[in-house]
């Protein structure tokens, strides 16, 4: 059995670790509250953008634009949204695996990573990382989304990639989040058809012209999707970290209780032994 001093030292170290995990839990939960309200603020923009596009798709007859046209796929692009830091359970692993799975048939796929975890992971897998962004995962701004959006749209327009996928984490609840991979380019207009509330017979006007409006709106939509995914992923990361830190604190508590028991046993053993020695030394039994 370990000596009393050893056990005491263990208890002390577990306790200090527990203090850290508890603090991280509190930090994550307060950040989560803020991130959640940001997510709620971005939802109207996202929903309205979809509605407007639905109206355009319905109002305009026979639209065609490079951004919405399917073409033969020679290479694909992938954006993966991960965190910069660990200690958040399976959050990073899950989304990276989902992303990796999406490009498993295409070793040449161009990957853009957000978050240093994703950069390290896809680097180890020897994937073709063309750009990586760090330092934005926890608090993404719309400008960050614009940068990423501009980059993929350029790649797509140049024909370097024919499809672009986005791997992010969907927020279901604080405890439940789901890694997801969606196709963001070319934009699939069919899925919008049922969302419009506009009467399809009404005459729709476009200023300056249909093409110019689409040219403007579709990139905006792509940016919006990226921004929404960034914000949602940030919420999931904080949620995952909060849950992970909560269970870590609980585990530490259990460990402390076990060690306490061991410590008491060791103490009792030591006392018993001492008494036995004294009694033995006094020689009354002889």
């Amino acid at each position: 059995m370990a000596s009393m001093r050893d056990i005491k030292r263990r208890i002390k170290s577990v306790k200090s670790t527990q203090q850290i995990t508890k603090a991280m839990y509190l930090v994550a939960s307060s950040k989560l509250t803020r991130a959640k309200s940001r997510l709620a603020d971005t939802r109207p923009f996202f929903n309205e953008t979809r509605k407007v596009i639905a109206n355009i798709v319905k109002g305009a007859k026979g639209i065609s634009h490079p951004y919405i046209e399917q073409r033969d796929v020679n290479n694909i692009g992938l954006i993966v949204l991960t965190g910069d830091r660990g200690l958040c359970g399976g959050y990073n692993q899950n989304v990276m695996k989902a992303g990796l799975n999406a490009i498993k048939d295409r070793p040449e796929a161009k990957v853009i990573t957000v978050g240093s975890k994703g950069r390290e992971f896809f680097g180890r897998q020897k994937k073709n990382i063309i750009n990586s962004y760090t330092g934005i995962s926890e608090k993404p701004t719309y400008e960050d989304a614009l940068k990423i959006g501009r980059e993929v749209l350029e790649l797509y327009a140049k024909g370097e990639v024919d499809e672009v996928y986005l791997a992010y984490t969907q927020f279901v609840s604080t405890l439940v989040s789901e890694p997801k991979v969606i196709k963001i380019l070319p934009v699939d207009v069919e899925e919008f058809k049922n969302e419009s509330s506009v009467d399809s017979n009404s005459l729709m006007m476009f200023e300056p012209s249909e093409e110019e409006v689409l040219e403007y709106v579709i990139p905006k939509y792509v940016n919006t999707v990226i921004f929404g995914a960034l914000v949602e992923s940030a919420v999931c990361e904080l949620g995952a970290r909060m849950t992970a830190m909560d269970s870590a604190s609980e585990n530490a508590q259990e460990m402390i209780e076990k060690l306490d028991l061991m410590y008491n046993r060791a103490r009792q053993g030591a006392i018993t032994q001492e008494i036995t020695e004294i009694v033995g030394g006094s020689g009354i039994y002889n």
Partner: peptide
């Protein structure tokens, strides 16, 4: 982008930048 426009109730459906 093509000039100032004023819009009131009952306007024809329009999308513009």
């Amino acid at each position: 982008t093509s000039g100032d426009i004023g819009i009131m109730h009952g306007h024809q459906p329009l999308t513009t930048t």
